[in-house]
Each structure stands twice: as structure tokens, then as C-alpha cells.
């Protein structure tokens, strides 16, 4: 590391001013507001200390949301990262027409989540959807999909993965491109098989890219609420009621800004713990 008195601050200045004004300051406001509650009787904000947090702890809805959020993320994050890594490796192969395949596989990146949600809702409709139409004509039973508390969360995992894998693969593909091919050539001379190559060369050199994708993907999925908002309203029977959806509901439906802010503070603490673990696991050894 290099020490220099003023240089680092000058390089940081524009970003920190921007973040300070447009992210940090509003975020502090949100944090403080988690300690307040709007009194409809006096029409004022009243300081309530940790009351917003305590009332969440005693609310079964909160604990259900914690459970759903963790279940969702325990499945979706590893799934997306593994699939994105696989896709990146596939797209890194120098075969004819790879440019075409890359462009196709990256298409879902530009499908916005609301549009994807609307589209999948039509396709997966239990009575009139295309998927059930195909299933029944092949002799299978029609499925309730988003209308079943056993399936809805996994359907959302599927939709978010359809949309997300290409996106995360871009970052990993860029990382793969930086692995010097000389290393592979040397390994091939030593008679290493593909798997050893992957463990010895690809994976270690990809740790930084993987850390980025793991962290960014985790944050994105913990904050995901558009599919629940558009397709299920957190249902059926609260089976897709993630913390972020509860936050939005508290803020914009139930007029509990203080509770929404408290929920976010807790959600961020959960995210920090998880990405802390992820970065430990993916820490480069050198």
C-alpha cells in the first residue's frame, strides 16, 4: 500500500460527495426515522426509541417474513451464482457462433422485472396458462404455480433466476477473459484434466469476480420485491411475504414509515452478516 497525504482524498472526493448527499444523508434520515412514529392524534412524529423494532419482534408476521426471506435467499443465491458461473464458462468457449449465443443469453438482462412478472403470470396461469396447456396435452396434471403456497416461492426463484443468471454471467465472463491462457496451456502440458484445471487455475483466479457477484447478487435478492408485489401480494397465505415486501407494505400501504425503516435496518444487518460469510469463504489466499 502506498501512503500519500492528500491524493487518496482527492480521488475519493467526487464519489463521496455524491454518495454523501444522495445516499448517506437520506439513509441516515431513514435510520433516524426508524426511532420515530407518526402520531395520527397529534399529527406529529414522536420519538419512540426502539419501539418500532420491539413491536416487529413480537409480531408473528415479521418472523414469518424472516423465515421466507432466508429460505428464498438460501436457495436463490447459490443457484444463481453456480448457474451464472456455468453460463460464463460455456460462453467463454471459443466455438463458432458464440457471439450469437452470447447475445441471446444476455437478452433477459434487458427485460425489466415488472414486465417479466406480468409475462410469467400469464404463462403460468393455472386455468389458462400456456405451461399448463402444454402439461395437460402431454398427459400431466395442471399445476397451480403462483396460486399454491407450496409452489409460489419457487416459481419466483425460477423467474428471478431466468432474469438474473445472464446478468451475473457478464461479470464472471469478464473475469474469465482475464485468466491468462498460458496457464491453461502449461496445465495441459502437465496432463491436467478439466476438473483439476478448474480447481487449480480458474477458481482461484476468479475469486475476486466471484466475491463481487456473490455480494451484489445477495444484496439484489434480499432487496427483491417486484415479483411479489406484482404477482402474489406476498401470498398465497404469506408464503412469499419477504421482508422487503413487508417493508414496502409498511411504507406505502400501512403508513408505518418508522416500522419500514426499522425493518430495513434489520434487513441490512442480515445482509451484512451473510456477505461477511461469503467474502470469508471467497477470500483470495495470496
Amino acid at each position: 500500500m502506498i501512503s500519500s497525504k492528500w491524493t487518496p482524498y482527492l480521488f475519493l472526493l467526487p464519489a463521496i460527495v455524491g454518495l454523501g448527499i444522495f445516499s448517506i444523508y437520506p439513509a441516515f434520515q431513514a435510520f433516524f426515522s426508524s426511532l420515530y412514529s407518526f402520531s395520527f392524534v397529534n399529527q406529529t412524529n414522536q420519538f419512540v426509541g426502539l419501539q418500532n423494532y420491539i413491536s416487529e419482534f413480537t409480531d408473528p408476521v415479521f418472523w414469518n417474513s424472516v423465515k421466507v426471506t432466508l429460505l428464498f435467499n438460501v436457495v436463490i443465491n447459490p443457484l444463481q451464482i453456480v448457474l451464472a458461473f456455468g453460463l460464463a464458462i460455456l460462453l467463454n468457449k471459443r466455438v463458432k457462433g458464440i457471439g450469437f449465443f452470447r447475445s441471446i443469453h444476455f437478452i433477459p438482462i434487458s427485460v425489466s422485472l415488472p414486465i417479466a412478472s406480468v409475462l410469467f403470470m400469464i404463462i403460468l396461469n393455472p386455468d389458462e396458462g400456456l405451461v399448463n396447456s402444454v402439461l395437460t396435452s402431454l398427459g400431466f396434471h395442471a399445476q397451480p404455480f403462483l396460486h399454491s403456497s407450496h409452489q409460489a416461492l419457487w416459481v419466483i426463484v425460477g423467474i428471478a433466476t431466468w432474469k438474473g443468471v445472464g446478468y451475473w454471467a457478464v461479470f464472471l465472463l469478464a473475469g474469465l477473459q482475464e485468466v491468462p491462457s498460458a496457464l491453461y496451456e502449461a496445465a495441459a502440458l502437465d496432463g491436467a484434466n478439466k476438473w483439476t484445471e478448474f480447481i487449480k487455475i480458474t477458481f482461484p483466479l476468479m475469486k475476486r469476480s466471484l466475491t463481487f457477484v456473490a455480494v451484489a447478487d445477495t444484496v439484489a435478492n434480499f432487496l427483491l420485491f417486484a415479483p411479489m408485489y406484482i404477482m402474489t401480494d406476498g401470498g398465497p397465505n404469506n408464503s412469499t411475504d419477504v421482508l422487503m415486501y413487508e417493508t414496502i407494505k409498511n411504507a406505502y400501504v400501512n403508513s408505518n414509515m418508522g416500522s419500514a425503516d426499522a425493518l430495513i435496518v434489520m434487513l441490512i444487518i442480515i445482509i451484512l452478516i451473510i456477505i461477511g460469510v461469503e467474502s470469508k469463504l471467497l477470500k483470495p489466499k495470496h
Binding site: 399454491s148 401470498g235 398465497p236 407494505k249 400501504v253
Partner: peptide, 22 residues
């Protein structure tokens, strides 16, 4: 009711659950 938006969203949700067989 001053909580109309909550009321409506909860009633809608109840009817959605009813549609799904609850």
C-alpha cells in the same frame, strides 16, 4: 376508515387466498 388503504389491501388479499382455495 382512515386505514382504508390497509383495509382494502387486506380484503383483496383475503379474497385472493379464498380464490386459491383457503
Amino acid at each position: 376508515t382512515p386505514g382504508y388503504i390497509t383495509w382494502e389491501s387486506e380484503v383483496d388479499k383475503a379474497f385472493e387466498n379464498i380464490m386459491d382455495g383457503t
